[in-house]
Design a protein around this nucleic acid. Sequence first.
DNA 1: TCCATTTTTTGATCTGTGTCAAGGAACGAC
DNA 2: GTCGTTCCTTGACACAGATCAAAAAATGGA
Lengths: 247, 247
Amino acid sequence: MQQVVAPAFKNCTDCPIRHRAVCAKCDSEELELLEDIKYYRSFSAGQPVMWAGDHMDFVASVVSGVATLTQTMEDGRTQMVGLLLPSDFVGRPGRGVAAYTVTATTDLTMCCFRRKPFEKMIDTTPHVAHRLLEMTLDELDAAREWMLVLGRKTAREKIASLLSIIARRDALLGSAPPGKELVFDLPLTREAMADYLGLTLETVSRQISALKRDGIISLSGKRKISIPDMDRLLTEAGDDSDGGYLT
Amino acid sequence: MQQVVAPAFKNCTDCPIRHRAVCAKCDSEELELLEDIKYYRSFSAGQPVMWAGDHMDFVASVVSGVATLTQTMEDGRTQMVGLLLPSDFVGRPGRGVAAYTVTATTDLTMCCFRRKPFEKMIDTTPHVAHRLLEMTLDELDAAREWMLVLGRKTAREKIASLLSIIARRDALLGSAPPGKELVFDLPLTREAMADYLGLTLETVSRQISALKRDGIISLSGKRKISIPDMDRLLTEAGDDSDGGYLT
DNA sequence: TCCATTTTTTGATCTGTGTCAAGGAACGAC
DNA sequence: GTCGTTCCTTGACACAGATCAAAAAATGGA
């Protein structure tokens, strides 16, 4: 554990979880067998990757693009339960059935690992098992943070939370200078945003229009967002105490 | 992995995660060091166990009683993000700070393990690490299921989901015959239920009254629930197509 | 036992978000 | 280019659940 965080998302060509943060041992010999068990798959925007209940003989890591994890009730109500950005991991070792529906929302490339050999590797490679536990714990924290968003935040705050998450991850990937105006593409349709936030697409659209009207964000086209001041988005999203000059 | 599920929650005196399902190797010698690092703590109903941000030098498993995991915003809005029932695990190895506020909602006993030696044990005992990953993945699935509840279900359905979870866990603990009328104590106040469900306590109270009025559940006192037909609770909770005879 | 406190219920009213509906803008196929 | 499709916006209105308020029931201590 000597190496530290710096060169995240970079050049860990043999580690199954190479796309996330740092893996201290990525260059070591013990992972060579991965060459045999990994392969790449690509999907185009909108394409389903797998359906809940499908047989699933691999686990995977997102290399580029964005995918969503959703759950649907019999009557069609849909909730997104995870957003997969580059470096995120999908699939549960030890379980051959997909628990969620996965959909590519942009063009997507995943690095897949055949499940059985991957499981064997976990058992024989403690640091990979350890890393996997860390990642799962991070996901659990993210899910719990999202429970607060779903249960207690207003529509406006929900949008702010979502934009903040996407902007933060986007910045980490190196495309944005920190502390300045953030500009990024929304990788989701209004409907997908609604499914993530537990809202309807109309409410999402209205709230985005309102944030734009209040000067907290601006759009070029429908999908390119720019946020001059992230703190302002987060603190004022809930109250528009100084939004209108006539109140 | 020869042993199977039957005698859950029973007699795994040395395993840190003994209270949950079956641990195939609980009797083996490798866990003996646990005697040195474990101790028990008890709390009475209503008492805080720890606050988010507190220094935390242990991890723990719930032996008896119920505790909640909550998150609070600066303005006081509160969301419960986890319900800890007997056999559940709290604490993140490798992190010395509590991420959530933990509160005992009934009298509670936890089996605690000093964190540092516990971490060492994980590194040296693969099957414990493996079990911990399994448990974390289960919690992640539970959190995601709860996202669907929070994001897309009506108040009535939310109550039904909560009752179902508590009843199921209660039955697993052996206090109820399966398939028959379920009777159990609600270990939560109306307010705590509201915090779990993303509702107000008034709405919780009203919905429980409505379920009682419709004959789907019945109460003795405020806390003892009986559910004659769990399927009916789950299928009719959302629509009261035959609830009132005058519609 | 009685009193103080906490928890729960219920009512009246308000409001944020959903629903239904219509039209506009962007995009790909031909 | 034009057409068809999908995505997005906006308006009018309805309604589930929140808020405010008060009282009833349960609980615990002296």
